[in-house]
Amino acid sequence: MIALVNAMHITASVFINDDESGLHHDYDVWLEKLAPHEPVSQYRHNVGEDNADAHMKRQIMGREVVVAITDGRLDFGTWERIFYGEFDGRRKKRVLVKIIGE
């Protein structure tokens, strides 16, 4: 069996990594350097909106993850966890989780 976890929104992400607060902070800093929110005028998408950076951050972090399941448990490495990344926050969002297989 496999589990599919999908962010279901163009400015949000689902990814797998270590659940460590320093790493989460480092991701925030790194993503802001790669696609800074300000100045919003630097992005063409921001005519009427101001979330172009959120679209780019989602592209970097990914849309979905697929994880194998054995004996009813996700097959993770020791420190791996699934995370939801929210880069815009203004709209209602949902996450899709599908279990595929027997």
Rank of each mutant, 00 (worst) to 15 (best):
G101Y: 09
E102I: 10
E49P: 00
R73D: 08
F76Q: 14
N6M: 06
M1E: 03
V95R: 02
R91E: 15
D53L: 00
F87P: 06
F87H: 12
H37M: 09
D50N: 13
V29L: 10
I10P: 07
G22T: 10
V29R: 09
L31T: 01
A35G: 02
G48R: 11
K33W: 05
D19C: 10
D50A: 12
M1C: 04
M8N: 06
G101T: 06
D26P: 05
K92T: 15
W79V: 09
L34C: 02
D26I: 03
L4K: 04
F83W: 10
K33S: 07
P36M: 03
K33N: 11
G48E: 09
E80F: 01
G89D: 03
D50S: 13
V47S: 10
V97N: 07
R94Y: 14
I100K: 04
T11K: 00
N51S: 11
P36V: 05
E86Q: 11
E102K: 07
F83A: 13
G62H: 01
I60W: 00
A12P: 00
I16R: 06
P39A: 01
E38Q: 05
D88H: 07
I10C: 13
V40H: 11
I2Q: 00
G89H: 03
A68C: 14
V29T: 06
V95M: 09
L34G: 02
K92S: 15
H37K: 07
H55C: 05
M61W: 00
N17E: 02
S21Q: 06
D53K: 00
D50V: 13
D71N: 15
R94W: 15
G101N: 02
Q59F: 02
E20C: 12
W30S: 04
T78S: 15
A3G: 05
D18K: 08
K98A: 04
K93A: 13
R94A: 15
H45R: 03
G48I: 13
G101Q: 01
Y27K: 12
Y84A: 14
